[in-house]
Amino acid sequence: DEVRLHVNGHTIEFRGIDEEIFKILEEAAKRGADEEELRRLAEKLLR
């Protein structure tokens, strides 16, 4: 299960996240989070 999030012209792939987590990451990206911040956030949410 892989999703792709487009951030500042880059595509970031995440594996094993559900739609709810994806929406949180998408919102963070809209607020200016970079790839590293998004990955840290995803790790926290998946715990």
Results as ranks from 00 to 15, higher is better:
residue 40 R to V: 10
residue 38 L to W: 01
residue 28 A to W: 11
residue 2 E to Q: 05
residue 10 H to L: 11
residue 27 E to I: 12
residue 6 H to S: 12
residue 26 E to Q: 13
residue 25 L to M: 03
residue 4 R to F: 10
residue 30 K to P: 00
residue 45 L to I: 07
residue 29 A to G: 05
residue 34 D to G: 11
residue 34 D to N: 12
residue 19 E to T: 07
residue 45 L to T: 04
residue 8 N to Y: 00
residue 4 R to C: 07
residue 9 G to K: 01
residue 25 L to A: 00
residue 29 A to F: 07
residue 5 L to E: 03
residue 18 D to K: 02
residue 46 L to H: 05
residue 8 N to H: 03
residue 41 L to H: 02
residue 38 L to P: 00
residue 33 A to H: 07
residue 47 R to Q: 14
residue 32 G to D: 03
residue 36 E to M: 13
residue 23 K to G: 09
residue 12 I to S: 01
residue 6 H to T: 15
residue 32 G to E: 01
residue 7 V to N: 02
residue 6 H to C: 11
residue 16 G to K: 01
residue 25 L to E: 00
residue 45 L to D: 03
residue 17 I to M: 08
residue 8 N to F: 00
residue 31 R to D: 12
residue 15 R to W: 15
residue 31 R to P: 01
residue 1 D to N: 13
residue 5 L to V: 07
residue 4 R to Q: 10
residue 16 G to S: 03
residue 39 R to L: 11
residue 15 R to M: 15
residue 9 G to V: 02
residue 3 V to T: 07
residue 44 K to N: 12
residue 14 F to Y: 03
residue 2 E to Y: 11
residue 14 F to R: 04
residue 19 E to A: 11
residue 27 E to T: 10
residue 38 L to H: 00
residue 13 E to I: 15
residue 25 L to C: 01
residue 45 L to P: 04
residue 21 I to K: 08
residue 38 L to R: 00
residue 45 L to E: 06
residue 21 I to T: 14
residue 5 L to S: 02
residue 32 G to S: 03
residue 3 V to C: 12
residue 20 E to P: 08
residue 16 G to R: 00
residue 29 A to C: 05
residue 6 H to Q: 14
residue 2 E to W: 13
residue 28 A to Q: 10
residue 22 F to M: 07
residue 20 E to C: 07
residue 26 E to Y: 11
residue 23 K to Y: 08
residue 13 E to G: 01
residue 31 R to Q: 13
residue 26 E to M: 10
residue 12 I to M: 01
residue 30 K to T: 11
residue 21 I to N: 14
residue 37 E to L: 09
residue 34 D to I: 08
residue 23 K to R: 13
residue 12 I to G: 01
residue 4 R to N: 06
residue 22 F to Q: 06
residue 39 R to Q: 06
residue 24 I to Y: 10
residue 4 R to H: 15
residue 28 A to S: 10
residue 16 G to P: 07
residue 27 E to W: 06
residue 16 G to W: 03
residue 14 F to M: 09
residue 27 E to G: 09
residue 14 F to Q: 06
residue 38 L to V: 08
residue 1 D to M: 15
residue 15 R to H: 15
residue 40 R to T: 12
residue 11 T to F: 14
residue 28 A to L: 08
residue 42 A to V: 12
residue 45 L to C: 14
residue 46 L to I: 13
residue 10 H to N: 10
residue 4 R to Y: 14
residue 30 K to G: 11
residue 21 I to G: 15
residue 8 N to D: 08
residue 11 T to H: 10
residue 21 I to Y: 04
residue 2 E to S: 14
residue 16 G to I: 01
residue 33 A to V: 10
residue 17 I to Q: 02
residue 5 L to G: 02
residue 39 R to F: 09
residue 20 E to V: 11
residue 36 E to R: 11
residue 44 K to S: 14
residue 18 D to E: 07
residue 44 K to C: 13
residue 42 A to I: 09
residue 41 L to M: 12
residue 5 L to P: 02
residue 8 N to P: 04
residue 30 K to W: 09
residue 9 G to H: 02
residue 44 K to R: 08
residue 8 N to R: 03
residue 21 I to L: 12
residue 32 G to N: 04
residue 35 E to L: 11
residue 9 G to S: 02
residue 10 H to W: 00
residue 16 G to M: 01
residue 5 L to H: 02
residue 14 F to V: 13
residue 17 I to V: 08
residue 19 E to Q: 09
residue 24 I to A: 11
residue 46 L to Q: 14
residue 37 E to T: 13
residue 33 A to I: 08
residue 42 A to W: 04
residue 26 E to G: 05
residue 37 E to M: 13
residue 27 E to Q: 12
residue 14 F to S: 06
residue 13 E to M: 03
residue 30 K to S: 09
residue 40 R to S: 13
residue 10 H to P: 01
residue 20 E to T: 12
residue 6 H to D: 10
residue 9 G to E: 03
residue 1 D to W: 10
residue 42 A to H: 07
residue 28 A to F: 10
residue 44 K to H: 14
residue 28 A to D: 01
residue 16 G to V: 02
residue 46 L to D: 06
residue 36 E to V: 13
residue 9 G to I: 03
residue 31 R to I: 09
residue 28 A to I: 09
residue 3 V to L: 15
residue 42 A to Q: 03
residue 14 F to H: 04
residue 20 E to G: 10
residue 38 L to I: 14
residue 26 E to K: 11
residue 30 K to M: 12
residue 32 G to P: 01
residue 5 L to I: 15
residue 29 A to M: 07
residue 20 E to I: 11
residue 6 H to V: 15
residue 45 L to R: 03
residue 18 D to W: 04
residue 44 K to W: 09
residue 25 L to Q: 00
residue 11 T to G: 02
residue 42 A to N: 03
residue 14 F to G: 07
residue 38 L to K: 00
residue 12 I to W: 00
residue 37 E to R: 07
residue 46 L to G: 08
residue 35 E to H: 06
residue 31 R to Y: 08
residue 23 K to Q: 10
residue 19 E to H: 07
residue 13 E to K: 04
residue 10 H to R: 09
residue 7 V to E: 01
residue 7 V to Y: 01
residue 25 L to H: 00
residue 32 G to A: 02
residue 37 E to F: 14
residue 37 E to N: 09
residue 31 R to G: 13
residue 25 L to T: 00
residue 3 V to M: 15
residue 39 R to E: 03
residue 19 E to W: 06
residue 13 E to C: 07
residue 14 F to N: 07
residue 18 D to H: 04
residue 43 E to P: 00
residue 3 V to S: 08
residue 10 H to Y: 01
residue 13 E to Y: 03
residue 28 A to V: 08
residue 46 L to M: 12
residue 26 E to F: 11
residue 19 E to S: 08
residue 25 L to F: 02
residue 38 L to S: 00
residue 13 E to S: 05
residue 46 L to K: 13
residue 14 F to T: 06
residue 20 E to Q: 12
residue 46 L to E: 08
residue 20 E to W: 11
residue 29 A to K: 02
residue 14 F to E: 05
residue 37 E to H: 14
residue 39 R to C: 07
residue 42 A to P: 00
residue 8 N to T: 02
residue 34 D to P: 08
residue 9 G to P: 02
residue 32 G to Y: 03
residue 9 G to Q: 02
residue 11 T to R: 01
residue 5 L to D: 02
residue 36 E to P: 14
residue 44 K to A: 11
residue 18 D to V: 05
residue 11 T to I: 14
residue 27 E to P: 00
residue 26 E to R: 06
residue 18 D to C: 06
residue 36 E to Y: 12
residue 41 L to A: 02
residue 7 V to G: 02
residue 35 E to K: 03
residue 3 V to H: 15
residue 35 E to V: 14
residue 33 A to L: 13
residue 6 H to L: 05
residue 4 R to G: 05
residue 29 A to N: 05
residue 23 K to H: 09
residue 43 E to R: 05
residue 8 N to K: 04
residue 4 R to P: 03
residue 6 H to I: 15
residue 39 R to D: 03
residue 9 G to T: 01
residue 40 R to H: 10
residue 24 I to V: 12
residue 47 R to D: 14
residue 2 E to L: 15
residue 39 R to Y: 13
residue 13 E to F: 02
residue 28 A to G: 03
residue 42 A to E: 03
residue 41 L to W: 04
residue 12 I to T: 01
residue 43 E to K: 08
residue 25 L to V: 04
residue 38 L to N: 00
residue 35 E to W: 07
residue 5 L to N: 02
residue 40 R to F: 11
residue 7 V to T: 02
residue 37 E to V: 13
residue 14 F to P: 05
residue 5 L to Y: 00
residue 14 F to K: 04
residue 38 L to F: 03
residue 22 F to K: 06
residue 34 D to T: 13
residue 29 A to R: 02
residue 33 A to R: 05
residue 15 R to E: 15
